[in-house]
Write a protein that binds this DNA or RNA. Structure first.
Length: 272
DNA sequence: ATAGATTCCTGGCTGC
DNA sequence: TGCAGCCAGGAATCTA
């Protein structure tokens, strides 16, 4: 499941390959991935030069010379990969392919097909992109900010951290891992989190995301970076996907429950 | 206004 | 061994 570190890895891999290339042709194999009218999409993408590739939250932003931006969201199983010339495409779930210069390609592959691609002129055309909260590694995300957001809410801290309007880029894996590192139970209501705990949590989020970025993200099942390679943060997970296995810190079995409709992993002994 | 439930989708896993 | 049925989850949409 691509979250901030995975999406950032993809962007870093793609940026040097894509900048300066021109999209010569687009092959839409699964039309519902494209959120625009297909005709409009093609008119605004074909023959355009890619001038920048960046990220905001879990969104990939491919900026074109005509001022429009092609926004890609990978959702569950999407993968955006650069395929150099003369290299054979072996994707089994290819949904959209972009022909670039000299026979190279940009491939969008997606098993469960939840991902989306949309061409926009303004960020406000995608409300969930426009209303994203702060990036966890920016200075504007800190303990005071997190405390102010948690304090006024009566839902679980797990669901609050999954809310992209409060903090951008976290998903199920990094929320569970950050809460373990901060020693906070995911079921705690936002309003019960003390200032000191919010500070600890904000630091745990920054630490978890930074470390995952350094490991090239987590490949739990499907994730691949912009070169089609796996990440390695799955070797450093404390709780995610470890239900019933012994806690790495204390040895007691990791609990797996459901919160906000998501599988939630935590240690009853380490997290209060 | 706010939060919880439902929906989309396919492959992998479980258990009979 | 085979296969039905369950489970995974980001975010839009619906419901309470």
């Amino acid at each position: 499941m691509p979250e901030l570190p995975e999406v950032e890895s993809v962007v870093q891999d793609l940026r040097p390959e894509l900048i300066g290339k021109i999209i010569r042709n687009v092959d839409i194999l699964l039309p519902r991935i494209i959120q625009n009218d297909a005709e409009y999409f093609l008119q605004n993408v074909v023959c355009q030069e890619i001038v920048d590739v960046c990220r905001r939250g879990k969104y990939i932003l491919i900026v074109l010379k005509n001022g429009k931006t092609m926004v890609v969201h990978l959702r569950m199983t999407g993968a955006l990969m650069f395929l150099p010339k003369h290299q054979k495409n072996e994707e089994t779930h290819l949904r959209v392919s972009f022909d670039l210069d000299e026979g190279s390609q940009l491939l969008y592959s997606d098993t469960r097909t939840f991902g989306t691609i949309q061409i926009i002129s303004e960020q406000s055309e995608i409300p969930s992109l426009f209303s994203l909260g702060p990036e966890p590694l920016e200075d504007s995300f800190h303990g005071d900010y997190l405390y102010s957001q948690l304090h006024s809410r009566q839902s679980s801290v797990k669901s609050i951290l999954l809310n992209q309007e409060i903090i951008a880029g976290l998903g199920n894996i990094y929320v569970d891992e950050s809460l373990f590192r901060a020693k906070i139970r995911p079921s705690r209501l936002g309003g019960t989190i003390k200032k000191s705990e919010a500070v600890r949590l904000s630091l745990a989020i920054k630490e978890t995301i930074s470390q995952a970025l350094g490991e090239g993200g987590t490949t739990f099942r499907d994730y691949r970076n912009g070169k089609g390679e796996k990440g390695s943060f799955q070797d450093h997970l404390y709780v995610y996907g470890r239900g019933n296995q012994p806690c790495i810190k204390c040895g007691s079995p990791i609990s797996k429950i459901k919160i906000a409709g998501r599988g939630t992993h935590y240690c009853v002994k380490c997290q209060k």
